[in-house]
Design a protein around this nucleic acid. Structure first.
Lengths: 182, 182
DNA sequence: CCTCTCATGTAAGACGTTACATGATTCA
DNA sequence: TGAATCATGTAACGTCTTACATGAGAGG
């Protein structure tokens, strides 16, 4: 249900069409959430059906450009959103990283290969970090909450990277002294 | 597909029954993954059908205790697992926290209420952190990868907590100087 | 006696991802 | 001319969560 509320939240800033909502969600909290078109349009439809948002078609006959539908929030939508934002803290966060799941079992694989994979992953984390810092420059003068979330994204990314580098060192050291042992 | 591999990975340590697999997954990487019974048993069934694991019923007639089914990994299962562990890094991690999603929009809600929710959340993070540190004591002499993942969990938890405390301070300060402004 | 933990399983539904289909505009 | 981006949408499939049903043993 969170995506529905994210949409309502975004429409507080201004009216938007579906495509824009997706790119905004990526920018605003791509750090802590992800979304795809397969969710956006069906959700817009149901929000519309429930009267939480309004829609106006943007192309008068003869206009160029693909058909666009402008969505805006209704009073009912504002109420639903306000209720959601007031709620007490709920369920825990979900952190799911297929790499970490494999990492736990690297002891059962080949050590050399494991180190290779870790190196690749470090590069990946670093690339991601660079991207986040790049984005942060553009975001840092925006709304305070958006900026703070962006900072969290960077700090978590840094924590991941630092941890993995340390882990690599430990495993490498371990691999050297431990040859043959089980 | 990751859960299937996690099961195969765990069965490398020793044969287990379904219930145990769940508790072990929670202990070993509850930091980075979660699981429920609704997934365990169907997955065990399909792994069995595909010959990746074996099963032996544990209760001879007359034995006490609930019926248990001991699962063990087959050679085919070992191969499938080895292949998985060798693969190059794949899709990005997913971090999803309903609280953070709401946080981004706290600017549209009441400031006082937002601070309350943040305080609750800080307490929640701290409770979680204490629990993780407690578990770590028992885990720290286990297999190196398990220990490292547990350390990551703690470090991330610390990063979250520190960030949220800082964010609270900033928002509080902001709220004071900013009254009435939009 | 009651509650907790151990133990196995199913079903319904919510949620998310991927792939497909379509088509215009912009820029190199 | 071709690629990238903007734009809307559907269908199929996978995955995850929640709730339900059942029952034994252990410990207070």
């Amino acid at each position: 249900m969170a995506i529905r509320h994210a949409i309502l939240g975004l429409l507080h800033y201004r009216s938007m069409h579906g495509y824009r909502i997706k790119t905004q969600i990526e920018q605003y909290f791509g750090h802590v959430w992800s979304i795809n078109f397969g969710q956006i349009y069906p959700n817009l439809k149901s929000l519309l059906d429930e009267g939480l948002i309004d829609m106006t078609e943007e192309n008068q006959a003869g206009m160029r450009g693909p058909s666009r539908k402008l969505y805006s929030i209704t009073d009912k939508g504002r109420e639903a959103f306000a209720e959601w934002i007031r709620k007490p803290p709920e369920k825990n966060m979900i952190l799911r990283d297929p790499f970490l799941m494999r990492f736990v079992f690297f002891g059962f694989g080949e050590k050399e290969r494991a180190l290779e994979i870790i190196d690749d992953q470090i590069r990946l984390y670093e690339k991601q970090l660079a991207l986040r810092k790049e984005r942060y420059k553009k975001l840092k003068d925006r709304e305070i909450h958006v900026r703070l979330i962006s900072e969290l994204g960077i700090e978590l990314n840094e924590a991941f990277t630092a941890w993995l580098k340390r882990a690599r060192k430990e495993l490498h050291r371990n691999g050297k002294g431990d040859r043959g042992r089980k």
